[in-house]
Computed example of a mutant assay.
Amino acid sequence: MSATAPMPGDVTASEWNLALGETLDRAELHQRYGGRIHPRISPSRASQNVLLFTTPAGLFDGWTGEHVHFTGEGGTAGTDQVLTHGNKSVLHHHTEGRTLRLFHQRPDTQDVTYLGHVHLDRDRPYVWADAPCDPRRPLEIARRLVFRLRPVFSPPPGFLPTTPPATWTPKIHTDSSPALLPDPSPAERAAASLLASYSRYLRAAHATDLVHYRIRPAGTLTEVSTHHDPARNEVIAVRPTLARTAIWAALGELQDVTRFMDQRPDPALLLPAEPDHDVAELLHHAGAAAIWPVDHYVFARTRPPKRDEHH
């Protein structure tokens, strides 16, 4: 007589019988072990399991060689993710006696592959990362939870590699400006073109080259890049627009990156056109210079106030 699949409510954690790497329909998985069919994090009332599903929404999901990174859920309404609901069930799985089971859900299907039994790192259970709240609204950035999970028996088979949090703050010198990611936005293309034009101008007119850096602060997953003019000791943020929100973001970016530079540099914004009186006054108050193209070969600039002038 063949064994029948247990009904929800009849399963205990000790009766888990999926093999590592086994693939099945997600509806069948939930029929066996409980939980809801749609969330990335699915705590079960029928068994002592919390089912975790890597999906395209998990921007930071991956294997670091020591930890599984698993992006939390929620926060799609323009807010940070918080440690409630499914995220809370992951955080407290030790104390609640639940087992974390990791799956990969294939895009555009309901097929899921079992990647193994994992548990939360006790010393550092999660880190934060900045990312879009929703892929359809890439400019709305908020904090995402990234859980740090350890495999109990073996590394997850076929899981994509990812980068662990920085243990210290490396300032990595690169020979060229960051390459555009696949399918860049028009704004990203415009910023890259503006930066390339300014680099050519500096080389031709002042015999100097920008130094490009990638910086990832200790304990974070999010990397920032910046550009340094060593002749002026000036750190430069690039914006392809004079919109106030873009200027605000650039000034914050400059404040952030200057703390990692060896000698405190002056801040500057590379802009597509001469700023109007209001923006120029804002930059003066913030102690930042403005740089903009006059034509294809010449750039103009304002002079930043002295360091003690804007305090």
Rank of each mutant, 00 (worst) to 15 (best):
L139Q: 12
A191R: 12
L29T: 08
E234P: 01
H277W: 12
D276G: 15
S193Y: 11
T4C: 12
A142V: 11
D209P: 01
P186K: 14
S44A: 11
A249W: 09
R26H: 05
P293R: 11
E28W: 07
I247W: 06
F147C: 01
Q31F: 12
V238F: 05
T222Q: 00
R216N: 01
E96F: 05
V11P: 01
A280V: 07
R101I: 07
V50Y: 00
P43M: 04
P184G: 07
R264A: 12
P178I: 01
P157K: 10
P156M: 07
L251K: 06
R301P: 03
L251P: 03
T54I: 13
H212L: 04
P272H: 08
R122K: 10
G78N: 07
T226S: 07
E15C: 06
P265Y: 02
A249P: 05
D175S: 14
D229Q: 06
A77M: 15
G58T: 08
E15I: 00
A13Y: 03
R122Y: 00
L139R: 07
P107L: 10
A3I: 06
L282H: 11
T169H: 05
R189E: 09
L83M: 15
V118C: 09
Y198F: 12
H85G: 11
P155Q: 02
R307D: 13
T245E: 13
D256Q: 15
Q255S: 11
W63I: 00
R148K: 13
P157F: 06
R45L: 10
E73I: 12
D80N: 15
S2F: 11
P240D: 14
A280R: 11
T222V: 04
S14H: 10
S14L: 10
P184W: 02
P182N: 03
H227Y: 13
I247P: 02
V257I: 09
L24G: 06
L83Q: 09
L91H: 06
Q48N: 04
L59A: 11
W248F: 14
N87V: 14
D209K: 10
F159R: 07
L242P: 09
A207I: 08
G9P: 02
H93M: 08
H30Q: 07
W63Q: 10
V146Q: 00
A179S: 04
L210E: 09
D256R: 15
V68Q: 04
D130T: 12
G116R: 04
P275N: 05
G78L: 15
G219P: 00
L51C: 04
E96M: 10
H173A: 14
